[in-house]
Amino acid sequence: MDTRRLRYLVELSHRGSMRLVAEALHVTTSTVSQQLALLAKEAGAALVEPDGRRVRLTPAGRRLAEHAVTILAAVDAARLDLAPDAEPAGTVRVAGFATAIRRALLPMVAELSRSHPRVRLLINEHEPAESYALLAADDVDLALTYAYNLAPVTFDASVDVVPLWTTSWGLGVPDDFAGPAAHDWIVNSRNTADETVVRALGALDGFEPRIAHRADSLELVQDLIVAGLGVGLLPALLPLQPGVHLLPLRSPDVTMQVYAVTRRGRAGWPPLATVLRLLRP
């Protein structure tokens, strides 16, 4: 139903005269009559009946007017909520990998609470493929994802992408490291990107990596390295456990780009726009 026609009906329920409605809304009386007639066709019921020289709402008209009050209030609230200059208010649902949550989301919680107390974060830890699926299903508003330079990603036209930061990666090895071909390799259990990188590095160095272990947690990857179970990729800025050494990777370098991904056209929603602004370095 046309919300403008609903507003005419609500005004008529208050004022009891099409002339007074026309004066209040700065239109002609014939416009009010025509719009109410069209609303009656949409509703499939008579909404107005004569009452002497005036008109009154029928029982169906009164019921629709009651609904219209709620509908118009919701529409007005939505307009305010979506206005570019509106005070941000709402729940932003985020899916992201653990490092991005720790590095980017958690440090902003205090600032968000102080400056925009009506914005709430719901955080879900997921690897990129899982996050993209949640975003496509509209189950989250923001996905924090990543891609390696040796395993690039192609983004769908249905999303908007903001690059956030880039991190160098190296090879985590144990004390008795005897060369990359001499050890088993540890890769991610929930994403295939780093396995793609590992196999590319092996091909460039003339060997095929033996993929033996899969772990999602970088802390667990280090535990496996210390236990002598293999070697694996680690970010350069990650604090290392005793017994783990990070060898730089050169020719080619290995870097990871982090992205903030939203559904196309959604980034202007004030709560989401606020979170995106705070995420940018």
Rank of each mutant, 00 (worst) to 15 (best):
R266A: 15
R15F: 08
D253K: 15
N149W: 01
A24L: 02
L144R: 05
Y148A: 06
P152G: 12
H26C: 09
I225L: 07
R266M: 15
V153F: 04
A104D: 14
V221F: 05
P107Q: 00
L72P: 00
R5W: 00
I211L: 03
S189V: 05
E219W: 03
I225N: 01
R4F: 02
G265W: 01
R93H: 13
V226G: 09
F177K: 00
R103Y: 08
E66W: 09
L229Y: 08
V27D: 11
Q222G: 04
A95N: 01
V92S: 01
Q35C: 14
L47N: 03
A40I: 01
S189C: 07
A178L: 04
R199F: 01
S17G: 09
Y148I: 09
E23K: 10
G202M: 08
P84G: 10
G265S: 03
L276S: 07
V275F: 05
P128D: 11
V187L: 05
I101V: 15
G230M: 07
V21P: 05
A227R: 15
T167D: 12
A181F: 13
D253S: 13
A73P: 06
R7C: 05
L224S: 10
G96V: 00
A40Q: 03
P209S: 10
E87I: 13
D2N: 15
V162L: 12
A227W: 07
A89I: 02
L12V: 04
G90D: 10
V92A: 04
T58K: 02
T154F: 09
G179M: 08
D85N: 11
A65K: 11
